[in-house]
Amino acid sequence: MRIFLILVLVFGLIGPVAVVTLYRFVPPPMTFLMVQRMFEGRGFDRRWVPLSKISPRLVGAVVASEDAGFCRHNGFDVAAIKKAFKHNANSTRIRGGSTISQQTAKNVFLWPRRDYVRKGLEAYFTVLIELIWGKPRIMEVYLNSIEWGPGIYGAEAAAQRNFGVSAAKLSPAQAARLAVIVPKPLSWKADKPGRYVRKRSGTIAARAGVVRRQGLADCVFH
């Protein structure tokens, strides 16, 4: 029994802390989703760049689109979770309440399928990255890891493949389009947007302006 408890302590608690600490300084490798997509034959294009080489316009756009409270919460947006829970109880269209921190924890450390075990681990890793990484590193890893199309991962690959520019040179409109397709990167296109993406991009561009003026993403650059 003692050996079992020691193993649980080492692999269940100390192990994740060690991995999260390592990824504070080195780029995380391929995620479970990336491996899955490769087996599906979707290819692989990921070009890691530091946060300093990603346009602040994209940072503002994803904050506006995915998590307006990113700089104010400690990994969990309780109000958003309650709102999503209430919506999902009365609708067949599931709405998520995950923050960018939670999405980063899931994308980097865990498998894509939804289950209670994964949600519990997601919460644990979210706490760890908030404590060990801080907001700038969370945003950097997030923007370098999320899926942005078939076999396309991270801001640099997304910018190059969709618009032929580096992530540092994205225009406000381009940044907004990329932010919009984050929830459905295999269905929506940033380079050839449909009606919904075009309309939603205008909304996100406007909200990104509010994010900039109110300093809602300032924690990323400090």
Rank of each mutant, 00 (worst) to 15 (best):
R2C: 00
R2F: 10
F4C: 07
I6A: 14
V8Y: 02
F11S: 09
L13V: 15
I14P: 00
I14N: 02
I14W: 03
V19T: 15
T21I: 11
F25H: 11
P27A: 09
P29N: 11
M30W: 06
F32V: 13
M34R: 07
V35H: 06
Q36M: 08
M38Y: 02
F39V: 09
R42F: 07
G43S: 06
R46E: 03
R46M: 06
P50S: 05
S52G: 04
K53I: 02
K53H: 13
P56W: 02
V62L: 03
V62E: 07
A64Y: 06
S65A: 15
E66W: 05
F70H: 09
C71L: 08
N74K: 14
F76K: 08
D77W: 10
V78D: 05
A79M: 03
A80E: 10
F85D: 10
K86G: 01
K86L: 14
K86N: 01
H87S: 06
A89L: 15
T92D: 12
T92L: 09
I94Q: 09
I94S: 01
R95C: 01
R95Q: 15
G96M: 12
G97F: 14
T99G: 00
I100N: 02
Q102L: 04
R114Q: 05
R114I: 13
D115H: 15
D115W: 12
Y116E: 01
K119M: 04
G120F: 10
G120H: 12
E122I: 03
A123W: 11
F125H: 11
F125D: 07
L128E: 03
L131M: 10
L131D: 01
I132P: 00
G134Q: 10
E140R: 04
E140G: 04
V141Q: 05
S145F: 00
I146Q: 07
I146F: 11
E147P: 01
E147W: 04
E147F: 00
P150E: 10
E156P: 00
E156C: 07
E156Q: 15
A157W: 01
A157H: 13
A158D: 01
G164V: 09
S166A: 08
A167N: 05
A168L: 13
K169V: 00
L170M: 14
S171M: 08
A173Y: 07
A176E: 10
R177P: 00
A179V: 06
A179T: 02
K184W: 05
K184L: 12
S187P: 00
W188H: 09
W188E: 14
P193A: 11
G194Y: 07
R198C: 01
T203I: 14
I204E: 04
A205M: 11
A205F: 00
A205L: 12
A206V: 07
R207S: 10
G209L: 04
G209P: 02
V210Q: 03
V210I: 15
R212Q: 08
R213S: 13
Q214Y: 12
Q214I: 02
L216W: 13
A217Q: 02
C219T: 08
C219L: 03
V220E: 07
H222I: 03
